[in-house]
Amino acid sequence: MIVANYLTAAALFCFGLYTVLTRRNLIKMVMGLSLIESSSYLLLISMAYRRGSTPPVLLNPPHGQTVTGLAKGNVADPVLQNFCLTAIVIGVAVTAVFLSVAVRVSQHYRSLDSDRMREMKG
């Protein structure tokens, strides 16, 4: 069932959240954020899938499918796939910004340990 995909996305989200919350290395925390992004991609694509559907970009219908069947909606949801595409492209830019911030912080504090950043403590 497609529910397994949702559960896997939830488990991946929990892995990323655990990494962000418990690790002290800044680059490891950015890695946890990348895991969370991957879980959101998986969730979006799993929501776009319908039972027995084909990709929405085909030129010719594959075996066992007709053009009228494809026109009646037996394709995956293109809107959610476009959301996922946008999320992938934005995700790599966000990761680059996070990593540059981590490099600047490590050059300022001479360390990557997040416990040593005393000015950030509330």
Binding site: Y41, I45, S46, A48, Y49, P55, A76, Q81, C84
Partner: peptide, 8 residues
């Protein structure tokens, strides 16, 4: 690919 999103 398995879930039908080749562009992604």
């Amino acid at each position: 690919l398995v879930l039908g999103a080749p562009d992604d």
